[in-house]
């Protein structure tokens, strides 16, 4: 457990760098984890070369989902949408650096599902989005 709440998670939860909303934006998507009601919205601004120039998340959730969203958005600033499309579950878990049980894994992965559903322009954030490379 102490590993689960390592300093970076707590720090990101308390002082997120990418919390907020972007209006106007180029890509926005929101969804929730129906099990716990955690809700996240992600907004992106993308330049003409298809590179993510700004990113922000809003909504509410536990420390794991919020820290995950913050770290994920930090990792995609300056990257192309093609790069974002190729992100998978392992990439995000590497960023978090923690071992998670099945229930909390859903918290950690919610931001990635939402980000990819937005970038692919899909109607819903499905688990399949976590696998593809």
């Amino acid at each position: 457990m102490d590993d689960l709440y390592r300093e970076i998670i707590i720090e990101r939860y308390k002082n997120p760098a990418y919390r907020g909303e972007l209006e106007p934006n180029d890509i926005t998507f929101e969804d929730e984890n129906p099990l716990c009601g955690d809700h996240i919205r992600i907004d992106l601004r993308v330049n003409t070369e298809g590179v993510v120039s700004e990113a922000a998340f809003s909504g509410h959730g536990c420390a794991i989902s919020q820290a995950s969203a913050d770290l994920l958005l930090e990792s995609i600033i300056g990257k192309t949408l093609d790069h974002v499309r190729q992100l998978n579950k392992e990439d995000l878990l590497d960023m978090l650096g923690i071992e998670l049980g099945p229930v909390r894994l859903k918290c950690a992965l919610l931001p990635l599902k939402i980000l990819k559903a937005g970038v692919y322009g899909l109607g819903e954030a499905t688990d399949e989005l976590l696998e593809e490379k």
């Binding site: 457990m1 689960l4 536990c62 794991i64 918290c107």
Partner: peptide, 14 residues
Amino acid sequence: EGIHPHDIAQILDS
């Protein structure tokens, strides 16, 4: 205040 119920439950479980 400031702590999500899931985090509370997880810390209590430990």
